[in-house]
């Protein structure tokens, strides 16, 4: 509280908001600029000294064109398929593994833990050559499964759910056992509800990762009818540079908006850990 007293409260508060607005302009400004430019009609200048921030004649024409120029609906559908596959496997299997990892007293637990830790040491880019040969050997190149499988279960998600399960006191488990609840029942009725917050984090993270991923689908997929939105966008950008930039802008806005909506809707989970830390 005192660190600004020497400056005067009001002045400090004003400075703070001015700085906040400056950072706001830097972080969101480019996205807004792209958005408003994508709404500009052919009469509105995009660039140059006559260009304005807001469109004088707002129109969705560029959005219409982008759907005509490239199969945008197909890209979106493919991205959604990838997201659903990934979210499903990233929620179900790491949760099962994380639960068992949080249980003590079974042989191999330590080995499993170390496999997880070791697997997180290798950056994807340093093993992608091997991954590609593995996927090709399995006959999965140029397929959704080939894109999905190597990233289907992430070690970090096992650790995230494990931490949530570990937070449940052992006494709760013992009490449930006395009441005759079997393992599956305890898992379903006690542990899963307790780990709901962690699972939401896993859902959001894996959805965003699958939606945003570029390099791996780019390596695996060759047929355009399998392209995800990121791949489609990059193709649109490299092929239509001579055309209207508004179209590429509209395309990138289409890729950004769903993820932003999801994020804003679920944002309290992003900052939850921070809030609870701040109470201390």
């Amino acid at each position: 509280m005192t660190w600004w007293r020497t400056h005067g409260r009001t002045r400090a508060l004003v400075t703070r908001y001015v700085l906040l607005l400056v950072v706001l302009a830097i972080s969101v400004g480019p996205l807004l600029w792209q958005f408003f430019s994508s709404l500009k009609g052919p009469q509105d200048a995009l660039y140059g000294s006559s260009a304005t921030f807001f469109p004088a004649n707002p129109t969705f024409a560029a959005y219409q064109t982008v759907f005509e120029q490239v199969p945008m609906g197909m890209y979106i559908r493919n991205s959604l398929i990838m997201c659903l596959l990934t979210v499903f496997s990233q929620v179900v299997f790491p949760t099962l593994a994380g639960y068992m990892l949080s249980r003590q007293g079974w042989r191999g637990r330590g080995v499993f833990y170390w496999v997880l830790i070791i697997s997180m040491m290798f950056p994807f880019e340093s093993i992608m050559v091997s991954l590609y040969t593995q996927i090709t050997d399995l006959g999965l190149d140029d397929s959704f499964i080939g894109v999905w499988l190597p990233g289907a279960i992430a070690a970090v998600n096992v650790l995230i759910t494990r931490a949530a399960f570990s937070a449940v006191p052992n006494e709760v488990e013992d009490a449930a056992m006395l009441d005759g609840a079997g393992e599956l029942r305890r898992f379903w009725k006690i542990y899963l509800p307790a780990a709901r917050g962690a699972m939401v984090v896993v859902v959001i993270n894996s959805f965003i990762a699958a939606w945003d991923d570029f390099l791996w689908p780019f390596i695996v997929l060759r047929s355009e009818e399998l392209y995800t939105l990121s791949l489609g966008l990059s193709r649109l950008a490299s092929s239509s540079l001579s055309y209207d930039p508004r179209v590429t802008m509209a395309g990138s806005i289409i890729a950004i908006v769903p993820i932003l909506v999801l994020f804003v809707a679920l944002q309290r989970y992003f900052f939850k850990g921070v809030e609870s830390g701040a109470v201390k």
Binding site: P94, V115, S119, S130, Q134, V158
Partner: peptide
Amino acid sequence: SGAALYRPWWTPWLWVAPAIIVIGVFGVFP
């Protein structure tokens, strides 16, 4: 914890099998 006594030795492996296979094959082996 008491629950460990009721598990056959292979139950935990059943639970972690998908994770350990995928992470082993696509996380460590590569």
